[in-house]
Amino acid sequence: MIKTKFDYDKYLRKNTLPHIWCPGCGDGIILKALLRAIDKCEYPKDDVVVASGIGCASRLPGYVDFNTIHTTHGRALTFATGIKMFKPRLKVIAISGDGDALAIGGNHFIHAARRNIDITMIIFNNYTYGMTGGQYSPTQPLGTYSTTTSFGSIEQPFDACNLAQAAGATWVGRSTSYHAVQLEKFIVSALKHTGFSVLEVITNCHISFGRRNKMKSPVEMVKYQKEKAIPIRSAENMSDEELAGRFKTGIFLENTDKPEFSSEYRKMAETLKTK
């Protein structure tokens, strides 16, 4: 089988490169998977909106040649909701970090899920606030260290996928920046889903998280992703003890029955027009 090299240049704004991400960061892997997925879906560049919040991951829109909005901290989904409702024909993607999506933006996250609005949200979960220097995030595992949990975190972390499902999202999955091939496949699936799709991607921040938690090199962090990731099916036969410290990967939910918000709104508006 001959694989042709994927032409990333088609989608990159080369004048904005190099990116700000640290050498060894997983975010670039997710960016590339996203571009391959969008290409697979054959969306015209003019029809794609990428909105983000604030943080390392949220710098992604600046590098890609779509309609891009780098919004305020935690609010990517609010802008995304506005433009999706106004121009439903656009493909709207929200990029967010774990703090951005689940702490400061947590309210918008659950409400976008509740509405089941057709937006694909990719959460870059690196367990930390990397851009501000490594403070603890709402997904940081119990007992791990950060610049604001010097004695180990005693706060229970969020499971973004459980939260998304409970709040009403209709496509929910998790992958990692190590599983780059699976990641691309999941992004395609999430993009093609009509409704609110949430893909959590475990990515590595060896600088802010790894360094304080005995994984100071990218290699150690990638190994962590490889070893701790348990596919949903394998996890079914494992005890709670065996699952401790690990995370499940795979597509947890794909529900096509629940009505999507922007199309429901149009339907309602249509019935009013004919009256």
Binding site: L77, T78, G82, M85, F86, N107, Y265
Partner: peptide
């Protein structure tokens, strides 16, 4: 809704203006 426009009651005040700005970027 009767004039082809969009009305949204958002989850809070912050998201309300966020949605307005998102829509305005779309030409609203």
């Amino acid at each position: 809704p009767k004039t082809g426009g969009v009305f949204l009651q958002m989850e809070d005040e912050i998201s309300a203006l966020g949605a307005v700005l998102g829509a305005a970027l779309g030409g609203a």
